[in-house]
Design a protein around this nucleic acid. Structure first.
Length: 334
DNA sequence: AATCAAACCAACCGCTATTTC
DNA sequence: TGAAATAGCGGTTGGTTTGAT
């Protein structure tokens, strides 16, 4: 048997409140207070309303200092950041915005703010896709112009070609470096090569790898939990969980700074801070900076596999691990 | 001007938490 | 101590308004 209803639904009025009802309720509460009993209140003032309905009307509409509509930019920011950190806890969010009710904020979020943000994200992604497409087209149509000093591979990653070739400028010395993105250790080395300040893809598309390193390195370090057992120290079999599509994703990210939604734990890799891409197009340089957008923040907040909650399958650490590798893996050398 | 769809928002519903007896 | 009453919360509904065709 369920709970008894708070009032007899047959005799209560439903639907919008009339000005007369509002006046009755407001006048009574301002004079006597609610008496901490909403259920008996409508009877006292002769309203054919459910006590719950009276409470809601008072809290959301009639009580003093209630603001309606006209949310400021600052309020938008508060709502967004709190939603990202605590989710749809509307009453808590409302507590941070004097004069706003949870209902109002909930409606505002569901009808406008969410669309505003996702619309902006969609626009950003479309613009980014256009830039990628244009650049690819440009490379296709003028291959000789884009032909650079490094010629081993195509410029854009494919299923069969997940290498990153870089021309690295370091203290005026130019060297070519090659990273196999299918190989986790190789990728790891890319992240850890602190000498690599800028990398040039085919001498035309330059990106600041140091930013990538700064942003990804601390996260990946947290994700790797060497397992100590009686028989030795083990690494999870996959140091980058959910890594299956990563080489392609990363290459795209590095080349064009395209924040992407990928499965599970890889979400945390994208859109952290900003990454500058400089496209040197003959006489002009075009630099674009992408900052963290809302969806990326969201994926960061809820990223399920960051750090401690990742459980991988153990894999024995190779015996011939170098000192540098051991440092990267956080394993003390015997 | 009429129609339709989308957007908006007040109010409702059902559930859980807290208080009271 | 436990059941009932009440408060509070978040999701959903449905009526109204607005904008596009």
């Amino acid at each position: 048997m369920g709970r008894a209803p708070c009032c007899d639904k047959t005799y209560v009025k439903k639907g919008p409140w009339s000005p007369e009802e509002d006046t009755k309720l407001k006048t009574y509460i301002e004079k006597h207070g609610t008496g901490s009993n909403w259920i008996s209140l409508p009877q006292k003032i002769g309203l054919k309303r459910c006590g719950k309905s009276c409470r809601l009307r008072w809290l959301n509409y009639l009580r003093p200092n209630i603001k309606h509509g006209g949310f400021s930019e600052e309020e938008d920011n508060v709502i967004c950041s709190l939603y990202l950190s605590i989710g749809s806890r509307w009453s808590i969010i409302a507590a941070q915005l004097p004069g706003r009710t949870d209902n109002d904020i909930k409606n505002y979020w569901n009808t406008r703010l969410r669309k505003k943000l996702t619309g902006k994200q969609r626009k950003d992604q479309q613009a980014q896709a256009r830039r990628v497409s244009n650049l690819k087209q440009e490379i296709k149509s003028e291959p000789e112009y884009f032909a650079g000093v490094i010629t081993q591979t195509s410029y854009w990653p494919s299923e069969h070609n997940n290498y990153m070739h870089m021309q690295v400028t370091n203290n005026h010395n130019v060297s070519n470096q090659h990273y196999d993105l299918n190989n986790q250790t190789s990728f790891w080395n890319l992240l850890l090569n602190k000498d690599t300040v800028t990398a040039t893809f085919n001498s035309q598309v330059t990106c600041d790898v140091s930013l990538l390193q700064e942003q990804i390195y601390p996260i990946t370090m947290n994700m790797i939990n060497p397992i100590n057992s009686g028989s030795g120290t083990y690494l999870p079999s996959n140091i980058f969980p959910g890594f299956e599509n990563f080489p392609n994703d990363l290459s795209e990210q590095v080349c064009v700074n395209q924040p992407q939604q990928v499965d599970g734990s890889m979400q945390g890799f994208y859109g952290i801070g900003s990454l500058d891409i400089t496209i040197n197009n003959g006489s002009t340089n075009t630099t674009s900076t992408e900052s963290t957008n809302w969806e990326d923040m969201n994926s960061l907040v809820y990223s399920p596999n960051l750090a401690s909650d990742y459980e991988g399958y153990p894999q024995e650490i190779p015996q011939d691990i170098t000192f540098e590798e051991s440092r990267y893996f956080g394993i003390p050398m015997q």
